[in-house]
């Protein structure tokens, strides 16, 4: 309940919460986006390759 109260109070006065504005300003966030996209697309390629193997087995 205490924690809940604190969260509620802070939410009301949260207009000036600290955010990673500097980090974004430097443009480094794009590095993070690029890395995550690379990972995600790599995973999709992997999934498609697995599916191709499965298809081969199905047709055997």
């Amino acid at each position: 309940m205490m924690l809940l109260a604190i969260v509620l109070i802070l939410n009301v006065s949260a207009q000036d919460a600290e955010m990673a504005d500097g980090f974004r300003g430097e443009g480094k966030i794009y590095v993070v986006v690029a890395v995550m996209l690379l990972l995600l697309i790599g995973l999709f390629v992997y999934l498609f390759r697995i599916e191709r193997r499965v298809k081969k087995l199905e047709n055997e």
Partner: peptide, 29 residues
Amino acid sequence: WKWLTMGLLVYTIIGALLFDVPRLAILNE
């Protein structure tokens, strides 16, 4: 629908990291 999945998740990564979010205490980024 697999291509749809890919598109949606690529959009999710970009949107989740780059779009504006509400500035909330404790939660922050």
